[in-house]
Amino acid sequence: MSIADFVRDLTAQVVTVAWFMFLLTWFIGWALKGSPIPFYRLKRTGQSLIEDAVVAAFWLALGSSIFSLISYITSNISYPTPPPPQP
């Protein structure tokens, strides 16, 4: 197994863990928000955890699209440069 494969496997595992982490955070967030403890700060924490989880899930889902967009743009830029202007 080459080091690139290793990194790719690691990435796949990280992505899986991240998805589970999103679910966990989501549940914890709702649990905190819906808990019968009348502390405003606790509710706020739960709210922000939910928001973060949603944003993280959004970027996680968009990750491959972002990278392919980057390679698309740069591969379009990296055409041979025009010859320099002659003085």
């Binding site: 690139a4 990194v7 690691l10 955070t25 914890i28 924490t45 989880a53 996680l60 990278f67």
Partner: peptide, 27 residues
């Protein structure tokens, strides 16, 4: 190209680690 591929995989890993950290239920 191998090196570039490795670097690219590392970049993706970095990105995903970032999302993982962002998704952590630690406020």
């Amino acid at each position: 190209s191998d090196l570039l591929l490795l670097a690219y995989s590392l970049a993706i890993l970095t990105y995903n680690l970032g999302t993982l950290i962002y998704a952590l239920p630690i406020p």
